[in-house]
Design a protein around this nucleic acid. Structure first.
Length: 560
RNA sequence: GCGCCCGUAGCUCAGCUGGAUAGAGCAACGGCCUUCUAAGCCGUAGGUCGUAGGUUCGAGUCCUACCGGGCGCGCCA
């Protein structure tokens, strides 16, 4: 609808140029928006204001010229010039029937669009290392990343979801040593306890399972514990597989799935790490100093050069990272988004610098990043301190079990990723009006309940009828229709700007309008055409609620 | 010290990429259930958009400098 109004404005501008009413000849970016103020119409444009400068005329005079040149349209009731030179559009009631028939026609597809043109995009998220269960920070990443994937999919992108993890390296050795210590019965206060050992209770459980020679399966690989306490490699394989399986179970419970898991160790065994190092050296972006190999990352915007190969011969973490991302590029992903915690934001410059130094034709801003800020957990009015090593932290699993999947997902995406998030467990658990999740789901369940009631009274499933839909003219009904008309645009904006929280805001607003409508109007009445029209309107609301909740990975219950 | 993010009602946060008189929920106060789910609705009150400049027809939104909070600045990942 907004797009149609926008076209009218552009046509008016073009017409003014054609008959020399206006002379600058350049169509400015025409912005049409829904005015905040009720009296300012259904849509408004500032076209006259932005034309004032190049035309050197008063905005109001230009606005008048534009209005005079707006083509005939069955949509328009009237057009007004207001304020400094805004043009306000008032649409006919019948114009909105188009929105309703469109929602019915598109159904589950309403809100979807084709901006992506079917091009491939890869989204990497969560990417937790297998050194412990997923915690609440991973949860936010999982919820935001998964919702972003759904948004990109809905806007015409071919999405590949990927999870990358480090299954070698110092942290994993540390993990294996911790399990080994537990196998030996060494406690964390023992001098023999490894320096930065993992102290969580799950380490004890891993040791027990290892000694019991259990078999675990993760990422399509099976690992059987040898039970040999001296075999650190066997312990490593078993611990990694066990923790990966745990994480997968948590993610499955969260309804988050991946297409591909990438292992850091494979970057070494496949020779990709060595190959990247060679290319960087050949491109003369490296030098040796103090027994280490350095990357001249300062040539590519970094604030200091970075060590690639340590004096002990091993590589720093970012070398496989560059190799991994080069691989993404070579796999044909012209667009890649990495969703990760903001505490790792320093990797961005490094990875991009490394990729530029490889000189593989990768654009400057590639890959894109979506960073989320920290999560603070509140319980009983107090902050729950997170300490991974001490093992005292809230896991994603605990949260899902305690709060429920729907509420957990909703809360995690409810805020702008840039904002720190306070996760109030007590609030999320409440099944009361304080809780926005239930507010939105309740709207859906309420409508379904009305439908059940209507069916009992012999009303057929609602269908679109222009004549009866013209009866939908109360402020509450029109507000619902107008908000629904903007759903596809909201989805497109959320996807384009990586802002999943727009979904939750929108759904809360839509649910609010419905509840207001419900309390003021009776749907099922003796007036059959009106009843039919309202049932049809509500079937559209159900579609939009369901589509929106679907993008969030949240259920739309029929009853509550 | 340097880099990134944040600062909007008592609290938690929106503010659609620069538009018209800055919004919602909670908390407070007052109303609404013999009628499709009261897990709901309506109303009242609540603001120097951290501060000071700047850019322009127009700034919560963009620029600069400060103040305050978070995160990061490793031959850890």
């Amino acid at each position: 609808m907004k797009e149609q109004v926008r076209r009218l404005v552009i046509q008016a501008v073009a017409a003014c140029f054609a008959d020399n009413t206006l002379s600058s000849g350049e169509i400015p970016p025409v912005v049409v928006e829904v005015p905040a103020q009720e009296g300012h119409g259904d849509y408004a444009t500032n076209a006259a204001l932005s034309l004032a400068r190049p035309e050197k005329k008063s905005p109001r005079a230009i606005a008048q010229a534009l209005v005079d040149h707006i083509p005939e349209s069955s949509l328009l009731e009237r057009v007004e010039i207001a304020g400094p030179g805004f043009i306000n559009f008032f649409l006919k009631g019948s114009a909105w029937q188009e929105t309703l028939s469109l929602i019915e026609e598109q159904g589950a597809g309403f809100g979807r669009s084709a901006q992506g043109g079917g091009k491939r995009v890869q989204v990497e998220f969560v990417s937790a290392n297998p050194t412990g269960p997923l915690h609440i920070g991973h949860g936010r990443g999982a919820a935001i990343g998964d919702t972003l994937c759904r948004l990109l999919d809905a806007t015409g992108w071919d999405v590949t979801r990927e999870f990358y993890y480090n299954d070698a390296g110092a942290q994993i050795t540390n993990l294996a040593l911790s399990v080994q210590a537990r196998c030996l019965g060494v406690e964390s206060d023992d001098p023999r306890w490894p320096a930065d050992g993992y102290q969580g209770e799950y380490i004890r459980e891993l040791a027990r399972a290892y000694l019991a020679r259990e078999t675990v399966e993760a990422d399509a690989r099976q690992v059987t514990a040898t039970g040999d306490i001296d075999d650190l490699e066997s312990i490593r394989l078993f611990a990694v597989a066990s923790l990966r399986r745990e994480q997968d179970q948590d993610l499955t419970a969260f309804d988050v799935r991946f297409d591909l898991y990438s292992l850091e160790s494979e970057l070494y065994t496949s020779g990709r790490v060595e190959a990247v190092v060679r290319r960087l050296m050949e491109n003369n972006h490296t030098y040796e100093q103090d027994g280490a190999l350095w990357l001249k990352s300062t040539d590519f915007g970094d604030d200091k050069d970075r060590v690639m190969r340590k004096a002990d011969g091993s590589y720093t973490y970012f070398v496989p990272d560059v190799a991994y991302h080069l691989g993404k590029w070579e796999r044909g992903f012209v667009r890649v988004v990495n969703e990760q915690g903001a505490d790792h934001h320093s990797t961005i410059t490094r990875v991009r610098a490394g990729l530029q130094a490889v000189d593989a034709g990768i654009p400057l801003g590639w890959p894109e990043y979506l960073l989320h800020q920290m999560v603070t957990v509140m319980r009983g009015g107090e902050e729950v301190k997170i300490s991974k090593r001490a093992g005292s932290y809230v896991t994603l699993r605990e949260l899902i079990d305690e709060v429920g999947r729907d509420a957990t997902r909703f809360f995690f995406v409810m805020r702008k990723p840039d904002s720190q998030l306070i996760f109030d467990i007590d609030l999320a658990k409440q099944q009361t009006l304080d809780n926005p999740v239930y507010y939105v789901q309740y709207a859906h369940a309420r409508i379904k309940s009305i439908f059940a009631n209507a069916a009992e009274k012999g009303f057929f499933p609602p269908v679109f009828r222009a004549a009866s839909c013209s009866r939908l003219e109360s402020p509450e009904e029109l507000a619902l229709i107008k908000l629904m008309a903007g759903f596809p645009e909201m989805v497109a904006g959320a996807a384009a700007s990586f802002e999943p929280h727009r979904l939750t805001s929108y759904l809360q607003e839509l649910a609010g309008l419905f509840h207001g409508f419900y309390n003021k109007n009776r749907v099922i009445s003796d007036d059959a055409p009106l009843t039919g029209a309202r049932l049809f309107l509500l079937s559209c609301v159900v579609t939009v609620l369901k589509n929106g909740l679907g993008l969030l990975g949240i259920s739309a219950p029929d009853s509550m």
